[in-house]
């Protein structure tokens, strides 16, 4: 086993008085595909939002590629990370959102190109080439100069994935990326994720309600319930051999 790329160590998170995560321990190795499942309100999305630095942690540690994400050393003691520290680490992480969050004032090609050029200071012609390749890969090579509001939801989500991939993250986070889509558009987005999962060696963490899909592509399934990891293991372990009643009843809702 190689060193984990992401480690959660006893991570707690409260919103006001409500503790949503009650001590999360989770190791993710490079290129591992992890699906986080569980009832809504169980804190699935919060886990990956903390990793993307969109949500502060309340206590515990998140280690990314050997570095503590939310804490840094200052004069020999560990203090809360500042923006500079967060920036130095989160470049390894990419995220795709439920509501796409494309930049509406840019064409889809510009959406893909802006971060590599401005954030990573990469050379423009190379970024352009790579962005076009990526958009072709997600099947949108003919829409380069379109604006997001000219696309369907499924197309928008595919652009969002291309935009994240062009940054070459070591970890990709997918936050219920099909939940806001019309049912007939879900398939095309799942196809792209399946393609990424198969061909790219980055680690992936998926928060999803597409149960069959998640179980199909995930190396590890994590069942989150009431703020703790109630069950974790390979898809077959979790599905077929788990004795956890709440997991069984949760899964049964997806079978008919």
């Amino acid at each position: 086993m190689s060193e984990p790329i992401v480690q959660f160590k006893n991570v707690h998170k409260s919103f006001g008085d409500v503790e949503v995560l009650k001590g999360i321990d989770l190791d993710i190795s490079p290129s591992e595909k992890v699906a986080i499942i569980g009832p809504s309100g169980s804190g699935k999305t919060t886990i990956i939002r903390m990793l993307m630095t969109l949500e502060k942690i309340t206590s515990g540690d998140i280690i990314v590629d050997g570095q503590n994400l939310w804490k840094m050393e200052k004069n020999g003691s560990m203090v809360e990370a500042n923006q500079k520290h967060l920036r130095s680490i989160r470049g390894d992480i990419g995220m795709v959102f439920q509501h796409f969050n494309l930049f509406p004032h840019m064409t889809i090609l510009e959406n893909c190109m802006t971060a590599p050029i401005h954030v990573k200071k990469e050379e423009k012609t190379e970024v352009r080439k790579r962005s076009i390749q990526m958009l072709e890969r997600v099947g949108l090579g003919d829409k380069l100069d379109n604006y997001p509001n000219q696309l369907s939801g499924g197309q928008k989500q595919r652009v969002a994935m291309a935009r994240a991939l062009v940054m070459r993250p070591k970890v990709m986070l997918f936050d219920e990326v099909t939940s806001a889509l019309d049912p007939e558009l879900v398939g095309e987005v799942l196809e792209v994720i399946r393609d990424i999962a198969k061909n790219d060696d980055m680690a992936m963490i998926l928060v999803t309600h597409e149960m069959d899909f998640a179980l199909d592509i995930a190396d590890k399934v994590v069942f989150l319930d009431e703020g703790v990891i109630a069950e974790s293991g390979s898809a077959s372990q979790v599905i077929e051999h788990s004795q956890n009643e709440r997991l069984q009843s949760f899964l049964s809702r997806f079978r008919n």
Partner: peptide
């Protein structure tokens, strides 16, 4: 929209870049 801030953060933009490239033009 809040999502615009989040997308910019996820692309590792600095606060200034986020304002200049994403928020301000909109």
């Amino acid at each position: 929209a809040q999502g615009q801030y989040e997308a910019a953060t996820a692309l590792n933009m600095s606060r200034f870049q986020r304002m200049r490239i994403v928020i301000f033009p909109q």
